[in-house]
Design a protein around this nucleic acid. Sequence first.
DNA 1: CCATTAATTTCAT
DNA 2: ATGAAATTAATGG
Length: 198
Amino acid sequence: MNIDQHLLHSFGGEDKIYKKMEMIFKEGDHAQYYFQIVKGKVKLNNYNEDGKEFIHNILGKNQSFGDPLLFLDHAYPMNAASLEASEIIRLPKDSFIEMIKKNPDLSLQMNACFSQQVYYKLLMMQSMASQNPTLRLKGLLDYLKSYHDGDCTHCFSVEFTRQQIANLTGLRVETVIRTLKKMEQEGNIAFKDRKILY
DNA sequence: CCATTAATTTCAT
DNA sequence: ATGAAATTAATGG
């Protein structure tokens, strides 16, 4: 979701600065704000029973996060933390609801966003259910590319570290490296420096 | 430069 | 085939 900054401000949205690696909300918290990134990157994650991290998603400029929880009476099922110094607009839940009531078109836009997210999450889930690391990586790449507008082959560059990719797919970093190498040989992906082009 | 962090390789299982 | 540990490369001050 990407809502006009001026509109957010006019309903009481405030700019908040987060330092690198700062917690924005954590699992179990009750949703109180709508969050939209102006600058920086945010990850949504969980830690499994033996402390390994699983990343649900990494969001950037003009993307919102956690908004589904504003419509539910549930605690957050995951954490949100900044990956780098970030600027985020924060709008209190009640004001957010007010804003939507006064701007019905937003409601429609949100439906479109949620639908899109559910759709791609479903595709992701199918890929992640596979034991085959190539399919998991391919699933992630397709998912990431869906956020990206352009549609040329091997020109979408993945700006994540190998470790982050591992945490997004539930694979080990070595497996990611080995599998990516294989995919490159098979022509599925290309490399520019060490970044993936898909 | 040195320190930190990421990528890759090695090695044991 | 997989992951922990060691090594090498890059990034940032």
